[in-house]
Design a protein around this nucleic acid. Structure first.
Length: 574
RNA sequence: GGGGGUGUAGCUCAAUUGGUUAGAGCGCUGCCCUGUCACGGCAGAGGUUACGGGUUCGAGCCCCGCCACUCCCGCCA
């Protein structure tokens, strides 16, 4: 029995035709003298009817023994449903198939969790869903995500090819690079003590492709980073990786500095206001020593107005304070504007001029909650940035802030600092990656005043999520050498060992080039409206990097270790 | 590495704050049922309260440890 139609296909126009459907038993409704079975495939579902007056007894009895998720094929006549029994919830709800023949392709055990009821299934523990991922993937929600992912991948490829980009696959077995994320290593059987590394991104190969004359490259590339996971971070993930000439930017641009000043984040969510305001000058000589002291130490005073949050309980204020402290704040000063007066433990320190400045800049009204941070510029901005998002969450929960679900605020963040300083290791490191070109007029400061150097780097942000980033690459070997050796303090020997091939490639005619990488999983998650990229990856890993379905990672045999010239120092904990 | 949350029947949850035999809905099993689509009715089975200790006359509940999942900080060029 070969399927003639899929389960979302039959309509009144098919009435009278003979059809064969195959798929899973979605649900069985056994009325005793009559059995309805909904058959589901990935396209949808169709009701079939088993009527004993019309069927051999044997078939009817077999239908009665079926349970959810058995795999069957049926043949029968498509007919109109009796008046008043249409099912408006499904697309095939006007017709049904009167079964003549049934083939049971496979029985199914009782399921560990329901897949037929979207409401129940969506609440099932994710641990269980991951363990039985194949069942989870049958749920319409997951099936839709996986399909959308496939469609977006195809659309991407069609678009890129039209624009003259070539998809080139780059090796997964690559070489370890000292900068950047922790890598996965692959021991080399052929030469003891040598290793491949899985790429954190196809970065270096794609630059080589530029030198190789590809001109416009893209790839849906798998990347690997052995770092701790988040809802939007997996050990292995997919990037839409692009390299070519300067990328056109149709979206709003905002500088890194402005993004921090206004939103307290380098990936601002601009779908709502509540912007930060600066009060450094106003409090420079304030009687409130916490503020004036921070300014004297070279810091700033920032504030934000959480409109309508004056009703926050002491507990909520406490929670916010703890939250702020977890980001390095020393405390969280606040003012509640309630009943026509300003209520705050620090009210007594403010004079009228300061109050007037606050009222003016923050547009303070009855019912507002004002929150302060006084610290070094970056710290103060980031703390209030986190508090801003927290407050937005609370206001959303109270229905005081609504954001249209189909609103996507895309923007470019530009003028990032090229370098950041690592206090622990006492050295500079690349904010983005070591191949990012400095802004031309800043190159002179590379060795004398590294913090002043801006990178030709841009992040693409949507709704507060970093979707991707790109940069104009260094294509002059001398600048690249300076970055490696003098700024990042990688020794000439190490540089030659790790990046020699790249520096050499640049000597043979390297065109200027820029690239961008978009987090494909994050993009799909945003399009699917889910907060976790696990929902758009067919087989994701848990927060600890395990695969609950296959139980990986797992030990290997002593022989495998011997072949790889490896010896274990610590055995697996039992 | 650190902080928070969760873990009770196959699933989703409850258990009056330490007190009788740990309950409900769904699912499952059996019987009944010819127009259901969350079918319905009757009956029934099903529990190492994640795991290991401890306190107590008595622990799902308190304490210590441990495991798993999850959210966040660090980390993620």
């Amino acid at each position: 029995m070969k399927r003639t139609h899929h389960c979302n296909e039959l309509r009144p126009a098919h009435i009278g035709q003979t059809a064969t459907l195959s798929g899973w038993v979605h649900s069985r409704r056994d009325l005793g003298g009559l059995i309805f079975i909904d058959i589901r495939d990935r396209e949808g579902r169709t009701q079939t009817v088993f009527d004993p007056s019309d069927l051999p007894k044997e078939i009817f009895e077999r239908a009665a023994s079926l349970r959810s998720e058995c795999v069957v094929a049926i043949t029968g006549k498509v007919r109109q449903r009796p008046a008043g029994t249409n099912n408006v919830k499904i697309a095939t709800g006007e017709v049904e198939v009167a079964v003549r023949a049934l083939e049971v392709l496979n029985m199914a055990d009782v399921l560990p969790f329901p897949v037929d009821d979207p409401e129940l299934a969506s609440k099932v523990n994710e641990e269980l869903r991951l363990q039985y991922r194949y069942l989870d993937l049958r749920r319409p929600e997951m099936a839709r995500n996986i399909r959308l992912r496939s469609q977006v991948a195809t659309a991407t490829r069609v678009f890129m090819e039209e624009q003259g980009f070539l998809e080139v696959e780059t090796p997964v077995l690559f070489k370890s690079t000292p900068e950047g994320a922790r890598e996965f290593l692959v021991p080399n059987r052929r030469e003891p003590g040598t290793f491949y590394a899985l790429p954190q991104s196809p970065q270096q190969f794609k630059q080589i492709l530029m030198v190789g004359g590809v001109e416009r490259y893209y790839q849906l590339a798998r990347c690997f980073r052995d770092e701790d996971q988040r809802a939007d971070r997996q050990l292995e993930f997919t990037q839409i990786d692009i390299l070519g000439e300067d990328i056109v930017t149709p979206f709003t641009r905002i500088t890194f500095e402005e993004a921090l000043n206004r939103y307290g984040a380098d990936k601002p969510d601009t779908r709502f206001g509540m912007e930060l305001a600066d009060f450094t000058e106003e409090f420079r000589s304030s009687g409130f020593k916490v503020f004036s002291g921070a300014v004297a130490a070279g810091g700033v005073v920032k504030a934000l107005n959480a409109k309508g949050l004056a009703g926050a309980t002491q507990g909520q204020i406490e929670t916010m304070t703890e939250y702020a402290k977890s980001f390095g704040a020393k405390g969280l000063a606040y003012i509640k504007v309630e009943g026509g007066e300003w209520k705050s433990p620090i009210m007594k320190f403010f004079n009228d001029v300061e109050k007037a400045a606050l009222t003016k800049k923050l547009g303070i009204e009855e019912g507002d909650l004002i929150l302060f941070a006084a610290d070094q510029w970056l710290t103060a901005c980031e703390i209030l940035g986190k508090i801003r998002l927290y407050c937005a969450g609370v206001l959303k929960g109270q229905g005081k802030l609504t954001i249209a679900p189909n609103r996507f605020d895309f923007l470019w963040v530009v003028d990032f600092p090229l370098l950041s300083f690592d206090k622990e290791q006492n050295r500079w490191y690349s904010s983005h990656h070591p191949f990012t070109a400095p802004v031309a007029e800043d190159i002179q400061f590379l060795t004398s005043d590294p913090k002043k150097v801006r990178g030709q780097h841009y992040d693409i942000v949507v709704n507060g999520t970093e979707l991707g980033g790109g940069s104009i690459r260094i294509h002059q070997p001398d600048v690249q050498k300076t970055v490696f050796e003098q700024v990042l303090q990688i020794s000439p020997e190490e540089t030659k060992l790790r990046f020699g091939y790249l520096l050499e490639a640049f000597r043979y005619g390297a065109p200027p080039h820029g690239g961008i990488a978009l987090g494909f999983d994050r993009l799909i998650a945003i399009l699917c409206g889910t907060p976790s990229i696990r929902d758009v990856i067919a087989f994701p890993k848990t927060a600890k990097g395990t695969d609950l379905m296959t139980n990986s990672p797992a030990p290997v045999t002593p022989k495998q270790l011997r072949d790889l010239h490896l010896e274990l120092k610590a055995a697996k904990k039992e």
